[in-house]
Design a protein around this nucleic acid. Structure first.
Lengths: 228, 228
DNA sequence: ACAGAATAATGAATTTAACTCAATTATCGA
DNA sequence: TCGATAATTGAGTTAAATTCATTATTCTGT
């Protein structure tokens, strides 16, 4: 009876099986891409039958979603934790920008999957990528709003558009990295985005210098008329 | 012999045939989406055989590219023309932002195709969408650089990142419109982006407070010189 | 320890849709 | 009018996701 028991191939737990599938999927999608990496490849890699994958996942797309969800949810958890220890909306916003760039730099393959295939509008439910972007955008918008309340950001700014500008710049930086493979200079990009956010590109000379000169002259005149 | 000649279905010119195919493809892709709109559908709509499509286009993807290329190249030509008649980098940059939003608003289906399917990295050639984004980004970058030379934009800004921020914000606005269908408030979005670009979100307290103090003093002085 | 119920895994069959190509039809030049 | 050339056809091929009847394993109550 032991022999019989031993000969039977014992099955891994549900969790283990899912882990195996997702890990194989990650590996295949990263090396071949989503479209060229087939379910057959994944099943082979995981050492199981194709049908088994379908008893755990609705579709190839659903499998991709899970691969991405697992990869990025780790970062989100960490980011939300780290934010708690950073003081001030400015610093937190800057951290979010920088951190995003680091994540992008760390795994080009995964970003490729996310960028190229996860943006879908499937009639019904919004895509995972959309959820993740919302989550990140939400974190940023929080900081922008906090900054406005605190008085360090202009209250007449559209926080939504500010988020779009930051998020959009990060996405395009990511896409450029994807295409060219040229490493991202994280400090430089962070600083550039940060500078744009803070001060825009309008030259300060035009408005502030004449104004400063005027203030000086008026103060001078006022001093004479109304000595303090 | 005339009868024979008449019975023969005369073939349209090469150009006409291609036009028909592209127009049917546009119609089918717009109504069903790229993935769900099949070559069979397109052939049926155009009143031809599937094989004929393949004698004019390499692949379904290539057909999509042509649909998009035709749609957007018209706008680009017009934009480049219009730019010539606008004075100053600021105005031209603002026009580019506004105009892009108008194009997005005008055809949601087409933007859906562009946004969702045209971003690809096909090992070899960059995607059409990429080319178009480059073209638009190029136009914007020109204006930003011109603005720097002219002295109205800060010269220490990264024009690349500035483009990414503008382009990224436009893309995200587009995507949001795609998902929700909520009309874009073109003026408001243009103004918000424009404001961020020009002045950033940093509070102007540093300059406004001294100014406020001065105003107070001036009012005081004026009261004395010219009592009400 | 065992029967049988419940659950999981299998892989061959189905389906779908892009793409091919040999055969057919139309056009063109002499 | 007759080949030669080019365009069109649509049935056939291929590839890959998805399904499902069958088989294998595990679990449960006795």
């Amino acid at each position: 009876m032991n022999i019989a028991t031993v000969n039977k191939i014992s099955r891994p737990s549900k969790k283990q099986r899912i882990d195996t599938i997702v890990e194989s999927a990650r590996s295949i999608f990263c090396s071949h891409g989503f479209e060229k990496g087939s379910i057959e490849d994944i099943a082979k890699d995981a050492g199981i039958a194709e049908g088994t994958i379908y008893s755990y996942f609705d579709s190839k797309r659903g499998l991709l979603n899970e691969v991405l969800r697992r990869h990025y949810s780790i970062f989100f958890d960490d980011i939300e934790q780290t934010l708690l220890s950073i003081e001030g909306p400015r610093n937190r916003l800057r951290y979010l920008i920088r951190r995003t760039l680091i994540i992008i730099s760390e795994d080009r393959n995964m970003c490729g999957l996310r960028t190229l295939y996860a943006r879908e509008i499937d009639d019904k439910r919004p895509s995972l990528s959309h959820d993740q972007n919302r989550r990140m955008a939400g974190l940023m918008e929080n900081e922008i709003k906090a900054g406005m309340e605190e008085g360090s950001f202009r209250p007449d700014t559209s926080s939504r558009i500010a988020c779009y500008m930051i998020g959009g710049a990060l996405e395009l930086t990511e896409y450029s990295y994807l295409r060219t493979g040229k490493p991202i200079d994280i400090d430089k990009v962070t600083d550039s985005i940060w500078q744009m956010i803070r001060g825009g590109i309008e030259s300060r000379e035009a408005t502030t210098e004449p104004l400063a000169r005027l203030i000086e002259r008026l103060e001078h005149v006022t001093d004479r008329l109304d000595p303090m």
